[in-house]
Computed example of a mutant assay.
Amino acid sequence: MSSEAAENAPATHVEVTEAAAAKALTLMEGEGMDVDVGGLRLFVQQGGCAGLSYGMRFDDEPEDDDEITEHHGLRVFVDSASLKYIGGSKLDYEDGLQAEGFHVENPNVVSECGCGESFRT
C-alpha cells in the first residue's frame, strides 16, 4: 500500500473527548453497569430528513463484529456497518446554557438537516 493510499484510507475509529467519556461513565455507573465490560454503543440508522441519523445506547457487552476502543476509561462499541459512515468522527459532550448533550463531529458528512439530527455522506 502506498503512503498516499494510506493517507486517503477511511478512518477506522471514533474519538471521544474527555468530557463525553466522563459524562457517559457517570450515566453508566448510575445505571449500575459494569464499566469494565460494558460500553457506549455509537451507531448509524436510517431516518431523519437527511437520510441517516446517529444513535447511542449503553450495552452490557460488545457484539462480535464491533470495533472496540477505549477513551478516558470509556469503552466504545461501533459495528462495522456504522463505522463506514462515522469513522474519523469525534464524540463530544456539551453542557451550556443553549444546549446540553452529546454531539458527533463527523468529517464524512456532506449535508445535514436544519436541526442537525440527521445527515448524508
Score class of each variant (00 low, 15 high):
K84L: 06
G32W: 13
G55A: 09
E100H: 03
T69R: 07
L74I: 08
L91K: 08
L40F: 09
L25K: 05
Q98R: 10
T69A: 11
V37H: 11
G47W: 07
D66Y: 02
Y54Q: 15
K84P: 00
A9L: 04
V110C: 14
E94K: 10
H71P: 00
F58M: 00
E7S: 14
L83Y: 01
V16G: 13
S3D: 14
L91A: 12
V110N: 13
V76E: 01
S2H: 03
F119A: 04
V104G: 01
E15S: 09
A50W: 04
A9P: 00
A22M: 08
E18F: 02
D59I: 09
E7T: 15
S111K: 05
S3G: 07
L83V: 03
G38E: 10
E61A: 15
N108Y: 03
V35T: 15
D59N: 10
A5W: 01
L25M: 08
N106P: 00
G39C: 04
E7W: 12
V76P: 02
G48R: 03
H103C: 07
A24I: 02
E15P: 01
C115I: 09
R120A: 07
V44L: 05
S3E: 15
Q98D: 15
S89H: 10
S111A: 13
A99Y: 13
G32K: 12
G114C: 04
R57T: 14
R120W: 05
I68S: 04
Y54T: 15
P62A: 14
E15F: 05
D66Q: 13
I68C: 12
G55F: 07
T26I: 04
E94G: 01
K23S: 09
F58A: 12
G39E: 12
F43W: 13
N106S: 00
E117G: 13
V35D: 08
E63N: 05
L52H: 11
D92Y: 01
D79T: 00
D79R: 00
N106G: 02
H72N: 14
S53F: 07
G101F: 04
E112Q: 12
D79E: 01
R41F: 05
V78E: 00
D79I: 00
D59W: 06
M33Q: 06
E94D: 04
G55H: 09
A20N: 06
E4Q: 08
S3Y: 05
E100R: 06
L52G: 08
G47H: 04
A50G: 12
T17K: 10
E105L: 06
E67G: 05
H103K: 11
D95W: 04
D95V: 07
Y54V: 15
H13C: 05
E61I: 07
G96K: 03
G47V: 08
E61D: 14
A11F: 03
R57N: 09
D36W: 03
P107K: 10
V109N: 06
C49K: 08
E105H: 13
A50D: 11
S118L: 00
G39T: 06
S53P: 02
S118R: 02
N108I: 03
P107N: 13
P107T: 03
